[in-house]
Design a protein around this nucleic acid. Sequence first.
DNA 1: TGCGCTATTGTGGATTTCCGTAGTCTCCTC
DNA 2: GAGGAGACTACGGAAATCCACAATAGCGCA
Lengths: 209, 209
Amino acid sequence: MTPPAIEAVAVHVVDDDAAIRDSLDWLFRSRGLTVRLWESGEAFLAAWTPAMRGCVVLDVRMAGMSGLDVLDRLEELTSLLPVVVLTGHGDVPVAVQSLKKGAVDFLEKPVDGGELVNRVLAGLALEARRHVAASATRALEERLATLSPREREVMDLMLDGLLNKQIADDLGIAMRTVEVHRARILEKFGVRSAIELAGRLADLRRADR
Amino acid sequence: MTPPAIEAVAVHVVDDDAAIRDSLDWLFRSRGLTVRLWESGEAFLAAWTPAMRGCVVLDVRMAGMSGLDVLDRLEELTSLLPVVVLTGHGDVPVAVQSLKKGAVDFLEKPVDGGELVNRVLAGLALEARRHVAASATRALEERLATLSPREREVMDLMLDGLLNKQIADDLGIAMRTVEVHRARILEKFGVRSAIELAGRLADLRRADR
DNA sequence: TGCGCTATTGTGGATTTCCGTAGTCTCCTC
DNA sequence: GAGGAGACTACGGAAATCCACAATAGCGCA
C-alpha cells in the first residue's frame, strides 16, 4: 500500500511499539483520518519537511531518540505540527517538560480512543490555523526579500513616520530618489500607501505568535 | 507584623496547610523575597486586585476552592501573575490541566527548595515583562478612550489607508472636517503621522499576546 | 560588448495634506 | 442664559506627495 503524499493532512503516529502503531492506525482510520506510521523519532524526523501537514501523536518513551528529543528538534525546525504526547507511565516532570517544549497535549496510556481522537481533531484544527497564518507570513516575507538593500533602508524609515525630506537628509540623497524608492516598495507589496503597508507588516508580526 | 503593601512585588503562597505556608515563607524570605501568605484560594482571590505584583505559588489540592479553580478565576480576571503550581500527589491529568489553564510551572512535593526558588524567580522575571507590556497597553487604551465617536470612525478609516477625500465621501462630510478630526486624533496620541500611530497600535496588539 | 538591475537626479505639474483663521449649530450642564 | 464640547464648514496659502518623462553611472554576467 502506497503511503499518502507528504503534504496530505495526516495523523503521524510515532511509536516504536508496532502493536500500538497498528491500534492507533485502526482507530484514526475508522474515523476517516489519513494516517502515517513511524517506528522511531529518527525515521519521522528524517522524513520531516516544512510541507508536512497534520498532527503528531508521539510516544514519549522510545528506544533511541526520546519523545522529548523529538519535541526539541521539531521546535528547532520551527515545525507547525501540533504534537499530542502519549506516555505509558504517569510522570509529572515529563508531562510538564513536554508541554513546555510545545506539545499541545499529554495523555496516559491506556488512552480512551474517543478522547484521543478529540485531542487529535483539536490539533488538526490548530494546525490548519497555523498553516493559514504561516502562508500569509511566507507571502509577505517573499515580497520583503524582493527589496533591494536601499529600498529596505527607505522602508524602515518610512515606517518610522519620517517625511521624504527627512529620509533624504538621513540617507544623504535627493528627495526625488526617496520618492522613487517609496513607489517601488509600495508596488512590490501591492499596496497603495505606507499606512496600508504598515497594516500588512503588523499582521505579519502578529502571525509570528 | 504588618503585611507588605498590595502593590509590592511579592511571592504569594496559597496553601491551606499552615506548616507548608511557614516553610515556604521561611524559604523565600531567606532568599530576600517578600512573601504574602494565604490560607485559601478564596482568601487570596478576595484580596486580588489588578495592582497586585509578583508571583503565585499555589497548592493544587485545598479544602474549599481547588488550585484549578483559582487558575480559572485568575484567567477570567486577566491577571498578570505567573502561577507555579505545587502538588502532593503525582497526577498527570491535573498537571496538564494546570499548564493549559495558564500555570507557568508544576512541581511535586516534597519540592527541592533551590528548584522552587529558581522557578519563582523565573516567574517574577516574566511578571516584570508582563507588567511593562501591560502598562504600555493601558496607556494606549486610555488615549483611545479619549477619542470622540466621530474621531474613532475617522481613525479606523485612516488606518485602512483611505485618503481624506475618500473618508469624507464615506462619512458624507467635508474634507476639511476629516482633516480636523485627523489632527485631533494624532494630537491625542502624541504622534505626528498616521504611520506613527499605526506603529503604536501595532505594538498594542502585540502586547496582547 | 551588451544587457539588466540598482541607485541616483532633474523638471514640471497635479493632487493631497496640513493648518491658521473664522464661523455656525446642536446638545448638555450648571 | 452662559459656557463648553463636539461636529461641521469655508477660505487661502504653504508644504508634502506623487509621478510621467528623461537621463547618467556603476556593477555583474553571459
